[in-house]
Nucleic acid binder design. Structure first.
Length: 275
DNA sequence: ACTGTATGACAAG
DNA sequence: TTGTCCTACAGTT
């Protein structure tokens, strides 16, 4: 779940609900000093940047959270139940209590530390200040396959394995096309489609890339029916076979009919080198 | 009650 | 490339 859309969703919710003096604690004990440093202070700004979440607190402290693969953010309407013992950080406000569990990173920074971290990230399609030119330049500079570049957070910040598979399919792009060979019109479509897809996911709170049957609400779609190619056997767009291969240790899914034929780039054996 | 797998990113070898 | 980190859920025993 933790691709960029969830962090933007969290930032929005936290800004709305964590009003008033923060009640901060670390029931698990691994962020006690950080929690004490912000306890009783007010949030001045909450922002997401790619898969990173920043809580800016009055006085200049910044709580930086990265969920990694397993981290979870849970929202409780107050009054919240007692925190589970593994809660790294609980932040309570007037209208919301948030529990952070198993994050890959949870640390106290200052504004300079936040800036330094963000400087290593590519543009985030969900941010108003995103500069697609930077993503274009970095794509041009890599010799890697397009699918690998899309997971590189210094190229584009926010997309994970689900968005990668779905946006490449939506744009009918060959995942193994060397990134630098993508032409500018194709890049523009890719950027636009990715942004649209991610914005929709922020609204849905999930990644849903198929149109639901008439009469069915988007969010009523079961998880495994909500994607066109990711973890699918057959393409929900054309019914063709979906292939899966490991790339940099992540499973890549793509439709052998919709994608890959573009430049005649699909190899004759049907398969592609795995690494 | 286990087991396998997953949306991520890092360090180490 | 591999292993690891504080999880969660679906599937199997």
């Amino acid at each position: 779940m933790p691709e960029g859309h969830l962090l933007h969703r969290a930032a929005r919710d936290h800004a709305a609900g964590l009003t008033g003096p923060l009640e901060a604690s670390s029931p698990q004990g691994r962020f006690t000093a950080g929690a004490e440093a912000v306890d009783g202070l007010r949030l001045v700004h909450v922002e997401a940047y790619g898969k990173h979440l920043f809580h800016h607190v009055e006085g200049g402290a910044v709580v930086h959270v990265h969920l990694g693969m397993r981290g979870v953010l849970i929202e409780h309407p107050p009054p919240a139940p007692p925190p589970r013992p593994q809660v790294r950080l609980r932040l309570g406000g007037e209208r919301l209590v948030v529990d952070l569990i198993a994050p890959q990173r949870c640390e106290l920074l200052d504004e300079a530390g936040r800036d330094a971290l963000v400087a290593g990230l590519g543009p985030d399609p969900l941010r108003d200040d995103a500069d697609p030119e930077l993503a274009w330049e970095r794509l041009q500079a890599t010799g890697r396959p397009l699918a690998a570049a899309l997971l590189d957070q210094s190229v584009v910040a926010g997309p994970g394995n689900v968005f990668r598979a779905e946006v490449l399919h939506a744009c009918h792009l060959d995942p193994f096309l060397p990134a630098r060979e993508l032409d500018r019109p194709a890049f523009d479509r890719l950027w636009q489609t990715l942004g649209d897809m991610m914005r929709q996911a922020v609204e849905d709170g999930r990644i849903i890339t198929v149109a639901p049957p008439s009469g069915v609400a988007r969010t009523d779609l079961p998880q495994d029916e909500a994607r066109v190619v990711y973890k699918q056997q057959r393409c929900r767009h054309c019914g063709g076979a979906v292939a899966a291969a490991e790339l940099d240790g992540r499973t890549l899914h793509w439709c052998t009919a919709c994608q890959g034929a573009g430049d005649g780039a699909v190899s004759p054996g049907g398969g592609r080198a795995t690494s």
